[in-house]
Design a binder for these strands. Structure first.
Lengths: 136, 136
DNA sequence: GAACGTTAGTCTCAAAAAGAGACTAGCGCT
DNA sequence: AGCGCTAGTCTCTTTTTGAGACTAACGTTC
């Protein structure tokens, strides 16, 4: 795991150069920062199941604003994770579907979601413990 | 994968109830929204390698503000991913180390980071293609 | 012995991002 | 003729983030 565009570590595998990080020059950050948003994961999860239209996604995730839905979909499209297809009906309908690149990303990503589901109780417990010790 | 606190799906495994999502009642979102930040992943990656002190982390990630470093570390600590230990020297030094829960989260998470590193070229290519078709 | 650097933050103010909701256009339905 | 449907965009307000000064007590330097 190399986090900066960097020379190979002396001894292989798990080495990771973190010295001299700058946001603009780190490939991992370049990719991660885009999918790390609150909504990206959610939309990728949805689109991993089947294609959806704009309005369907909006109804699916009731607390996203139209503005952020548009913007997040554009970002995902730009990075090659989803495709946008316009059907020239009147009014036009637009379908978003996951690409192969998107699927290949979602494979490891879904493991994190599964972790989250499984370990939610532990996290809630940790929060409770922290909050209790804080107000003391 | 159940994304809402929901009844078991009729046929097991890959089923996922996304109807009637509300942010506050979805365990996966509850967990993901906290680690989805721009800085969380970065700090988890660092702390997965070894414990670090506050100032070390600040130097390691030069473009994080002290404010966000404090806040992100507190969030990670609250959710049980990192521990904070104060050494009563003068001036006091504070060490942050990853917990077992944090390590168990970082296992799938690191797969996503590896994906990002590996597929950075594809993503950059997709961006270039998108940007080109946009300005046309 | 006075000035400076060190520590891990907090505080304030400015800038950027996100949320809420009105508004668009063209067609079908009643 | 008026209403609703579509996928957005535009504007305004609120929230989040960033930049940087400030703290306090000690060690080192001049």
């Amino acid at each position: 795991m190399v986090l900066k565009a960097a020379r190979k570590p002396a001894l292989g595998g798990q080495e990771c150069d973190m010295s001299g990080w700058d946001g603009g020059n780190c490939p991992v950050r370049d990719v991660i920062d885009r999918i790390a948003g609150k909504w990206s994961t959610l939309l990728l999860e949805a689109l991993s199941r089947r294609p959806y239209r704009f309005g369907e996604l909006r109804r699916l995730v009731p607390d996203i604003s139209q503005r952020m839905l548009t913007q997040t979909l554009r970002d995902l499209q730009r990075d090659g994770y989803v495709e946008r297809e316009v059907f020239p009906t009147k009014p036009p309908s637009v379908e978003y579907r996951m690409t192969d690149l998107g699927r290949s990303l979602f494979e490891p990503l879904s493991k994190v979601l599964q972790w989250a589901e499984k370990n939610h109780p532990s996290v809630k417990a940790a929060r409770a413990k922290y909050d209790e010790s804080e107000l003391a």
